[in-house]
Amino acid sequence: MTASSNPTRVALVTGASGGIGRAVAQRLAADGQAVVAAYAGNAAPAEQLVAEITAAGGQALAAGGDVSDPAVAAALFDTAEQRFGGLDVVVHAAGIMPLPTPLAEFAWEQVERVIRVNTLGTLAIAQQSVRRLRAGGALITFSSSVLALAFPGYAPYAASKGAVEAITPILARELRGRDVTVNTVAPGPTATPLFLDGKDEATIARLARQAPLERLGEPGDIAEVVSFLAGPARWVNGQLLRANGGIA
């Protein structure tokens, strides 16, 4: 494929096959951005998302791979540049959340997987972003309000996301003079398969009541925040935004 001469802003969204990532891809496409919908293993939901975006008049393509592999992360950027001419927005929504388990009971292989996917995956995507985003661009990563809530059972997950928060202001400063912003969104309890998996109705209802708004977040709530950071929010940089309805 040859690079497009279309001046439309171009976004790469990882984790786009479901949950928050899917909602973000849909929202950015509705905002007029061309979207590269990245998925880890299941191509069908990503291809369906691309079909929906293109049917609505947007531009999109799907691309797969494990983004904790730096070579795969680089290949996603190559794909975006070859198809659309470059990248303006990167939203790294891919991640995993294991079932809540006391640290003493975690299998070490599971701890390593959480760190690899959530932390190393973010670093791999961030490295390509700081090298290759165009002027006026935005890198948006994801943490979690679990860090502020300090729920028992989430130690490896919180550790993996704490690292994401730590690098955000550093990257913003490393990009001095480039006109590229770096921010992190920390959703609270959000009604996605990742969050709901393994929780009974009583637990879900209890979590929904904790926020002053007395409901779980919806993927569209988070996509709205990302849309702001990906477009008009040029004076928000190096920040952590908790999108959690006031739960923490």
Rank of each mutant, 00 (worst) to 15 (best):
N118K: 05
T184E: 09
V91M: 13
K199E: 02
G238C: 13
G21A: 11
V89E: 00
R22G: 01
Q127A: 15
A94G: 08
P7C: 01
A126H: 04
V89G: 02
D179S: 12
P45Q: 08
G177P: 08
V72M: 05
G217L: 06
R176K: 13
V182K: 00
I222S: 07
Q82C: 04
D31P: 01
W108T: 15
I20M: 07
T203P: 07
R215F: 05
A148N: 06
P98R: 15
G65S: 08
S143A: 14
V236D: 07
A16G: 00
E52P: 05
I167W: 03
A230N: 06
D69S: 01
A16L: 04
S145C: 10
L103V: 11
A172S: 11
L49Q: 00
A63W: 02
R178M: 07
L123T: 04
A150R: 15
D221P: 02
L12M: 06
G58C: 04
S5V: 11
V130S: 09
P156D: 05
G19L: 07
L49W: 02
I20L: 14
A73G: 09
V111Q: 14
P212F: 06
I167S: 03
G136H: 08
P7M: 01
L149V: 08
E214S: 11
R113K: 15
L120S: 11
G85K: 00
A93Q: 03
A46V: 01
S160F: 12
P156S: 06
A37F: 01
P102Y: 05
A202K: 13
L99W: 03
P70G: 03
L175E: 05
E109V: 12
D200V: 12
V164P: 01
A73L: 13
A25P: 04
A135Q: 14
V35I: 14
A40R: 02
A23C: 10
V35D: 02
S129D: 03
D31R: 08
A211H: 05
G153T: 10
L133E: 03
R176D: 13
S144N: 00
A248V: 07
A73V: 11
